[in-house]
Write a protein that binds this DNA or RNA. Structure first.
Lengths: 211, 211, 211, 211
DNA sequence: TATGAATGAGGGTTCATTCAT
DNA sequence: AATGAATGAACCCTCATTCAT
């Protein structure tokens, strides 16, 4: 008899939550549009709110300030990219270096696909660079990389492995960003990804020794 | 009586030109100080003028707008770095790959030495990114690189050589920037430069063939 | 079957009324806390509602607007103080001037004990100063004073008595507020109250004539 | 021959200084008007600038922020009142208690004449209450009072004299403010000033002893 | 040519109040 | 009756650029 009560309550609350979530979604989507179309310089809370079809007040109900929106966008990106790369790197059905190649390609293409957003987000970076979450992200990325490298360079010392991982990931990351920043064709981006993957492989091969 | 006129005029003008040059120099120096100390966000024309001991009006007499100052700073940087790298790369008394290694090290250290300026300049990049001179710079850099690569990869097709050059230079450039952005010690930066140079050599060796 | 209706309704209503009263009580208590802790500047309806564990909507069901809450707080204060002072002034077991002294002390201490609330309430005064109830309060206070003064200055004309009463009460009130506003120790506040009482007695003695 | 040079230079600069001064004057005057007419609540930088016939930017060239304007208004008031009271209290051609009476009257009337400004300024006090200059002002006032009291109560201990001075000045100040706050006629205000002066004299007479 | 006062659009953020649910 | 999401006017302040002197 009382069983439906909870569903009802939850039904009453569900629309609210769903609505909030929707609103946040709308705002983030609008933020992406503003950022891609207008650039970091013209990314203003008013513009985002208007694009989202929402009042500034509502925007501030869900985000404490402008940089929080930018940071959220960046965080979401990191999460997506991280998951993508994680899933590729841990796919033991492929050879390690093949996984690396696939990762580079996936990363380059994902950067390229949202180039204007990435560039604008990069331009906005100064505003959230100091945030503590940035460290967390880097740490997570590094750990993911380490696990993969442990497979590839089993005989290296932890310190050395850490260094090599840093070099590989940094290279992939910054070159990928740079390449997609210069508006290029998909074919070009793919060529670059192959080339950079090759470079990383050459580097690792030499490191590993006789491979 | 009127005879000395021309000399006088020219004498009058010379100091003016000298003065102008000095003024421009002062402004640029001030701009560098403001940028390094206060960051891109607090880089304002008023602040630069005050630091230079000059009026805003004068500043606007020599630079059409704020971004022009930033762009000039960037241009000067590029010129300096270009000359540095050019002189190393063309020093035929050293083996090509050794020259590459030296170039990477020189570039990494020059970035590292002015890290805060570089970061701030990078943060300000959005404001001058569209300027046409950016292309010229890249072209000059590429040509310098090509000449070096012609030595290293004589048998490669021009197209291929262009591509390899781009990859090498882009990698060096963006990794170097990233590394000096994260405040590291000089020893670390040197270690990174060696590692990246090694990576590039490995890449080129594979490309070249049997080296 | 319908007989119990009225009792039931009334029983149903009683809790409601009790509940309303409780709600109002909660809101006022929360308002006091917000005002004392955060000051007039940070006294917002949202903050009060949250502190009271109530929705803003509910808050607006019981108070037409923000100033009404502040005014109610002030009114309550006035009532409490009025009762306190009334009870002292009408205590015929003590000599009139002794009663005056006791009143001053009681008032000073009561102000001092809630100094931060009083100050904040004073800061918020502009928002409710125009309310008509302010006059009622003053009238009530004046009447209370008059009755006491009738005892002390029986021979004075009503007009004169009114004036003297105003002077005495105003002096006590504003000096008391000022003293407790400057954060002082209890001993200091007591010393001030004695001194001000002495001053008022000296004034009245001269007025009365030979006392 | 070169003599006029300096005047010329000074003439070139004089208008600027004069202009600045005039601008500051205009802004302060406008601030007074806005404060008196619209009250502390509606005292905004935009409103002041508009009333002064000046852009907000100019306003901010002369005042670092809104509270600085308010504080400057208050400071000017204090200076004026201080000078007024100082000149009366040190006029040894009159008997001390007569000087006190004159001071009270002068203070009450000066408060009354600008009642609406004073009230509004009082309402705005929370914004500058913490400023360090407030202490300086109080200190200056106290010293002025002390010098007068030294004449009146030569035999009192320094500590006692300080206390009596505080009581007298506080009473005059806060009662004067309160009286002019309630919009009264000039005659009423004068009556109040006489009465309060009488009260203070009665107090001091008792303190002094046989006077 | 140099100056620096003046401009004012524009930016981020707050909060009293309403009203659909 | 209760909720709290939504609103948007209003506020304070900055800064690139101009132009009268």
């Amino acid at each position: 008899m009382r069983l439906p009560q909870k569903p009802v309550v939850s039904a009453r609350k569900a629309p609210r939550q769903r609505r909030s979530r929707q609103l946040v979604e709308d705002i983030l989507e609008a933020a992406i549009r503003v950022l891609s179309r207008e650039g970091a310089q013209r990314f203003t809370t008013a513009r985002v709110a208007e694009t989202a079809g929402v009042s500034v007040g509502s925007l501030y109900q869900y985000f404490p300030n402008k940089q929080a929106i930018l940071f959220r966008l960046q965080t979401d990106e990191w999460k997506r990219t991280g998951e993508l790369m994680g899933s590729i790197l841990t796919d033991t059905s492929r050879a390690p270096l093949e996984r690396l190649r696939a990762t580079v390609e996936a990363f380059f293409l994902s950067e390229w696909e949202e180039a204007s957003l990435r560039v604008a987000l990069g331009d906005a970076a100064p505003s959230y660079r100091k945030a503590p979450e940035v460290k967390d992200h880097r740490k997570a990325g590094r750990e993911r990389g380490q696990r993969f490298m442990a497979e590839l360079l089993p005989q290296a010392s932890p310190k050395e492995r850490r260094f090599v991982t840093d070099v590989v990931m940094t290279t992939m990351s910054v070159v990928g960003k740079k390449v997609s920043e210069q508006s290029r064709s998909r074919a070009e981006v793919e060529a670059w990804s192959r080339e950079v993957a090759g470079m990383l492989c050459a580097y690792l091969s030499r490191r590993v020794g006789g491979i």
